[in-house]
Amino acid sequence: MGYDENKIDEMVLALLYLTLHEGDRAWKGHDWDALDRLHKKGMIHDPVGEAKSVVLTDEGLKKCAELFQKHFGSSNG
Score class of each variant (00 low, 15 high):
37 R>E: 02
49 G>S: 11
75 S>D: 06
68 F>D: 11
13 L>T: 02
39 H>W: 15
23 G>H: 00
67 L>F: 08
65 A>S: 14
35 L>E: 07
5 E>A: 09
36 D>Q: 06
47 P>H: 15
10 E>T: 04
24 D>C: 07
6 N>W: 02
68 F>V: 06
64 C>I: 03
31 D>Y: 13
6 N>D: 14
75 S>F: 10
18 L>N: 09
17 Y>V: 00
72 F>W: 11
28 K>M: 08
52 K>S: 13
15 L>R: 15
62 K>R: 15
62 K>C: 00
65 A>Y: 08
44 I>M: 04
55 V>G: 01
59 E>F: 05
59 E>P: 00
63 K>A: 04
1 M>D: 08
42 G>M: 09
49 G>Q: 11
37 R>W: 03
68 F>H: 15
64 C>E: 03
48 V>D: 13
57 T>Y: 11
60 G>D: 08
15 L>D: 08
3 Y>G: 06
75 S>P: 01
47 P>R: 14
49 G>R: 14
75 S>T: 09
40 K>T: 06
64 C>F: 03
50 E>W: 05
26 A>D: 03
70 K>C: 06
48 V>H: 13
10 E>M: 03
28 K>S: 10
56 L>T: 07
28 K>L: 08
65 A>V: 02
64 C>T: 15
62 K>A: 11
51 A>G: 03
42 G>Y: 14
6 N>F: 10
47 P>Q: 15
41 K>L: 12
1 M>P: 02
11 M>G: 04
16 L>R: 09
56 L>D: 03
10 E>K: 13
15 L>F: 13
7 K>H: 01
3 Y>W: 14
1 M>C: 01
10 E>V: 00
8 I>V: 14
55 V>S: 12
13 L>A: 03
43 M>N: 11
4 D>F: 09
33 D>L: 10
11 M>R: 10
31 D>L: 10
73 G>D: 12
46 D>L: 13
15 L>T: 12
60 G>I: 04
24 D>E: 14
66 E>P: 00
57 T>D: 04
71 H>T: 06
60 G>T: 08
38 L>C: 02
40 K>R: 14
67 L>T: 04
36 D>R: 05
66 E>F: 10
3 Y>C: 07
57 T>L: 12
9 D>C: 13
43 M>S: 09
67 L>D: 05
55 V>Q: 10
39 H>Y: 15
23 G>Q: 06
52 K>Y: 13
49 G>V: 15
